[in-house]
């Protein structure tokens, strides 16, 4: 059975990224379900060197994630200025599998349009989304 752990305190995009808002900053990663579908993550291509100098707009392609047999594009679920990238994932991409909502975080952005949060799903809606998609 697919893993469908969906923490209550996060917001979710239909492309399976999650967002955790603290003040005017948002941390972004991919959901438990997404990592489970991919299988063992072997590599991430994230905007490692762009922190502090890149504006990301909702829906922008910001990186790629690869397992042994699949590659997936990553899309930013909310607009903002890129503040930090999780450098630890360079050497330890498996953290996306082992702790997708914690050590497996990918980016932190400074929100440029907090109103966009309304476009994202809450935990209940995302759980329902996974069900309705036949996941």
């Amino acid at each position: 059975m697919a893993n469908t752990d969906v923490p209550d305190d996060l917001k979710y995009a239909d492309t399976h990224e999650w967002v955790r808002v603290q003040g005017d900053e948002a941390t972004i990663g991919i959901s438990e379900y997404a990592q489970d579908e991919l299988g063992d993550v072997v590599y991430l291509d994230l905007p490692w060197d762009d922190a502090g100098q890149r504006e990301l707009r909702i829906g922008d392609h910001f990186g790629d994630i690869e397992s042994v047999k699949a590659t997936s594009e990553l899309f930013i679920p909310i607009s903002g200025t890129l503040l930090r990238v999780n450098d630890a994932l360079k050497a330890a991409p498996e953290q996306v599998n082992s702790d997708p909502y914690g050590a497996g975080w990918m980016l932190v952005v400074k929100l440029s349009d907090p109103a966009e949060l309304a476009k994202l799903m809450d935990a209940a809606a995302y759980a329902k989304f996974l069900e309705s998609e036949g996941h």
């Binding site: 590599y43 690869e66 397992s67 042994v68 047999k69 699949a70 590659t71």
Partner: peptide
Amino acid sequence: LQTREQHIRRER
């Protein structure tokens, strides 16, 4: 590193 290759990446 087969995700580089056509059988996985296809049109990309």
